[in-house]
Design a protein around this nucleic acid. Structure first.
Length: 882
RNA sequence: GGGUGUUUAGCUCAGUUGGUAGAGCGUCUCCCUUACAAGGAGAGGGUCGGGGGUUCAAGUCCCUCAACACCCACCA
């Protein structure tokens, strides 16, 4: 149990013991549950579903924190806020994990069989499904667990079938034989976006193909000699004079003796290699196109495992050999037979499987595709006409560029873990139908391929809200969602597809704003990865520094431009220290409230300092609201940090200590202290939910809200605006700062109080009188006396020029006058520089003609102010020198 | 080959419509002042990557160069 007695609160904030209890308090009270029947305006976010295979990492921590900030802010601002949590079945990734476990037992999925394998994967998924969302609780995530979903649950599966059938019926899904990116390890096709290219050092082999029936040969350059058996032609550029006489002739493929023609095709680059290229339509996407144009039948020579195919085209001694072993062997064979003329080092890009890193084998195979061009139209329009806005805006360009050049999406995967394609083959006739249900299982059997995992994620914003049942309460209330928060790395994978599908099936953009944040990197700016061993575990950080510290630190590092965020363990001290500051300032206030349980401030009794802090708070509220609305989350953190620490703690709380001594204004000061703390906590709550809730619960109050997370978010109020007093307080700060400066400069110990004389102007004197008590306490001043501003200052003294007045500290025995002269000259120098530059402006007629009036006025008055101070300082220096 | 981002204090980075640069950490002084040493007070530190241009005025807009990072394309 957390302590409730103020005197029992530790002097160091204990995040660990607080956070668990507070989260439980929220959850037990059902505060995260959204009400679809609420009359309030909806605000909804669907979580980018983490993979069931995953453990919480820093990327999630940031993503979830930002969503939680938006949700909590809107919940407090009068919206019915719904955050839908859930996980992704992550087809390949999950299957790989389960297969790996099998392999550890010496088994393959084929040995286990499809049904048993799926059973095992479901078991595994069910065990892990909630794990990551449970971990998100450590982040303080206020999502509605009663609405938790899974991309492979019944509802999502219904949505998938519905979408598939409708797209098929519309002619937007087709099946066909094309070159796809094939992962020999995953044993499946993967899509273009799942293929990552890496630069690798390889070789460029020049191979001689002898002409048939005459002497001579054509030299071909290739990086993949093992595909030689699949060659159907040699291509040269139509305008390449080197080869013009050879086009139409026949050559003999080395090592097989097969005869193939030399053809001309524009695809060939005259300047690369030898200018002649072998055409292997079954194993290269470009060659496939060339082959199609010229009407060649592709020849398969590499199988799905990446091994040489046991077919007539391939010499028997190579059958079943791995593609790289075969390559070595073939090189040897070519060399032995004098077909190999030259080898060169060659750097080129090689496609890798995003999931397992295996080199992709472009393979001709029968797959299912979605025609993207027709769907992309609306998805492009929705972004162009502003129905969907990207923050930061530049990602729009990125999205549009991709969408405008979109290619068909290969959606079939030769996996077992995933949504089985709802197509059925007639065992007798071979006929195929696409339907949500099997027409007759005794005659029809379902397609064995499953769908790309992103197919179901693409439906996430509406499948989670009840679609295809468009009458569901959640769908009606919360769709379309408001904001999507994610990293830029999945704009193509996910965001683009949600937009496409959402528009096609609901007629509405699935969200109006896409908030893209940066990626988390290590302190050197490198991507965090398990293999590099540079990951930072958010749970470890939370244990060490606290969740709110983690959230605050990360939030403060978010920039409007969405830059990547570099972190290291020590950086989180920033947030922890701030949490501790909040804790201790709160303790002070709580210890001094004497049970004051309301914010009923008596406006007639407000001091200048009270008005200043209220004015400041008011402006902060205004700024914070605007910042959050505009996704300036980092700025929000900075503004609140600065206000709470530098204004409230460093100045107002210190001033309040003075005011609390005055029985006349004690109660009102307590109310101001309480009010500003209350509002500060509310303002901070979306970013630092636990500590703010914890402290807020400790503030004596009549029941108003049950929790700070349900309290009203502060907004700007006219009656709390005190610009005049806010300005006058500058005098307090300047005075106290100058006096402290003098004290430090002359090494006057804090224990030694001194008297001062203020040579004040008539305007400023009343203000000084009003703030005397603050000056006395905060600058350790004994007595304050006044003199006219024109009266010469006492000779043996240090002087601070503040605004138009002078503050004189008689320090006969304490100061070295040369030092004081130097100190004043330094200040004078600064002022003179400033004046010089300002005068340069004001004396420029073009400036006076063009600059805005208020700036000119401002410049003039600043010059006047400087002149007054200059005069004072000059006088001082003269008198010191005398 | 196209595109985007970055370059500001010793370090890590902020800086919304152009109006003489800010924070955190670190450094140097001083301080256990009854909320906080994870703290308080004071100080020092930058010709805003180079060059050019627009403007009365440029860290901010335009051009150019350089370095670094990333994305897309995929010449065998």
């Amino acid at each position: 149990m957390l302590a409730t007695n103020i005197d029992d609160l530790p002097t160091v904030y204990n995040a660990k013991e607080t956070e668990e209890d507070i989260y439980k308090f929220w959850e037990d009270n059902g505060f995260f549950k959204a009400d679809a029947k609420s009359p309030k305006k909806p605000y909804s976010i669907v979580i980018p579903p983490p993979n069931v295979t995953g453990v919480l990492h820093m990327g999630h921590a940031l993503d979830e924190t930002l969503q939680d900030i938006l949700i909590r802010y809107h919940r407090m601002s009068g919206y019915e806020a719904l955050w839908v949590p859930g996980t992704d079945h992550a087809g390949i990734a999950t299957q790989n994990v389960v297969e790996k476990k099998l392999r550890e037992q010496g088994l393959t999925r084929q040995e286990v069989g499809r049904d048993r394998f799926l059973e095992m994967t479901w078991e595994w998924a069910n065990e892990h499904k909630s794990r990551i969302l449970d971990q998100c609780k450590r982040l303080g995530a206020s999502f509605d667990r009663s609405r938790e979903r899974f991309t492979f649950d019944k509802g999502c599966s219904e949505a998938v079938k519905e979408v598939f059938v409708r797209l098929y019926e519309k002619g937007l899904i087709y099946k066909g034989a094309y070159i796809v990116n094939w992962c020999p390890r995953c044993q499946s096709a993967i899509s273009d976006v799942e293929t990552e290219y890496e630069t690798e050092k390889g070789h460029l082999w020049e191979i001689s193909y002898p002409l048939k029936g005459e002497s001579g040969a054509i030299i071909v350059a290739t990086t993949r000699p093992e595909t030689i058996f699949g060659d159907v032609a040699i291509a040269v550029h139509p305008t390449d004079h080197k080869y013009s006489e050879l086009v139409g002739k026949t050559v003999v493929v080395p090592l097989t003796g097969r005869e193939i023609p030399i053809i001309a095709d524009e695809y060939v680059d005259k300047t690369f290699g030898t200018g002649a290229v072998k055409i292997t339509p079954a194993h290269d996407p470009n060659d496939f196109e060339v082959g199609k144009r010229h009407g060649f039948e592709p020849i398969w020579v590499i199988d799905e495992q990446g091994r040489m195919k046991a077919c007539g085209e391939v010499p028997p001694e190579l059958h079943g050999l791995d593609r790289y072993e075969a390559r070595e062997k073939i090189i040897g064979m070519l060399e032995y037979n004098h077909f190999l003329l030259r080898v060169r080092e060659h750097e080129h890009n090689v496609g890798k499987c995003q999931r397992c890193g295996t080199t992709i084998e472009p393979l001709l195979s029968e797959q299912w595709f979605v025609k993207m061009k027709p769907l992309a139209k609306e998805a492009i329009a929705a972004v162009k006409d502003g129905r969907i806005k990207f923050i930061p805006e530049r990602w729009e360009k990125n999205y549009l560029g991709w969408m405008e050049n979109i290619r068909d999406w290969c959606i079939s995967r030769q996996l077992w873990w995933g949504h089985q394609i709802p197509a059925y083959h007639n065992k007798l006739t071979g006929e195929m139908v696409v339907a949500k249900e099997n027409p007759d299982p005794s005659v029809w059997e379902q397609e064995t391929d499953v769908l790309d995992t992103w197919f179901s994620s693409g439906l996430w914003p509406f499948s989670t809200l009840g679609w295809p049942n468009t009458d569901s309460e959640d769908f009606k209330k919360f769709y379309p969602t408001t904001t999507l928060v994610t990293g830029f790395d999945i704009i193509f994978f996910w965001v683009a597809r949600m937009i496409t599908m959402g528009l096609e099936f609901t007629g509405k953009a699935p969200f109006s704003t896409v908030y893209i944040h940066g990626l988390i990197r290590d302190e050197k700016g490198q991507k965090m990865s398990k293999s590099k061993g540079n990951t930072i575990d958010p749970v470890v950080i939370i244990d060490k520094y606290g969740c709110d510290a983690l959230r605050f630190t990360m939030t403060s590092l978010c920039t409007y431009g969405g830059q990547d965020i570099k972190i290291s363990d020590e950086r989180f001290e920033y947030g922890r220290n701030f949490a501790n500051k909040i804790w201790n300032a709160s303790r002070f206030v709580l210890m001094n409230l004497d049970g004051v349980d309301n914010n009923d401030i008596d406006f007639s009794k407000l001091t200048i300092a009270d008005k200043w802090i209220l004015d400041k708070l008011n402006n902060v509220a205004k700024e914070v609201n605007a910042n959050i609305e505009n996704y300036r989350i980092g700025e929000t953190a900075h503004v609140l940090y600065d206000f709470f620490w530098n204004s409230y703690c460093d100045w107002y709380v210190e001033i309040a200590k003075v005011q609390l001594q005055d029985s006349d204004i004690k109660l009102n000061t307590q109310r101001v202290l309480r009010y500003v703390l209350d509002m500060s906590l509310r303002l901070l709550h979306p970013i630092m939910p636990h500590i703010t809730e914890r402290v807020w619960q400790l503030i004596p109050k009549k029941s108003e809200f049950k929790a700070i997370m349900l309290a009203d978010y502060p907004v700007y109020q006219d009656q709390l605006s005190f610009p005049t007093e806010a300005k006058e307080m500058e005098l307090v700060f300047e005075t106290i700062k100058s006096l402290r400066n003098v004290r430090q400069s002359f090494n006057i110990p804090m224990g030694l109080k001194f008297n001062i004389t203020i040579h004040a102007t008539n305007e400023e004197k009343p203000v000084f009188e009003a703030i005397e008590s603050y000056i006395k306490r905060m600058a350790k001043v004994e007595e304050i006396s006044y003199a006219d501003v024109d009266v010469p200052v006492a000779k043996k003294s240090a002087t601070a020029v503040v605004s138009a007045s002078k503050i004189v500290i008689p320090l006969e025995n304490l100061i070295d006058f040369n030092e004081e002269i130097a100190r004043q000259e330094k200040k004078l120098g600064k002022l003179q520089n400033e004046k010089k530059s300002l005068e340069g402006r004001i004396n420029n007629p073009k400036f006076v003609a063009n600059a805005p009036a208020d700036l000119i006025q401002q410049t003039k008055s600043r010059i006047e102010e400087i002149e007054i101070q200059e005069n004072s300082i000059n006088e001082l220096i003269t008198s010191l020198k005398a």
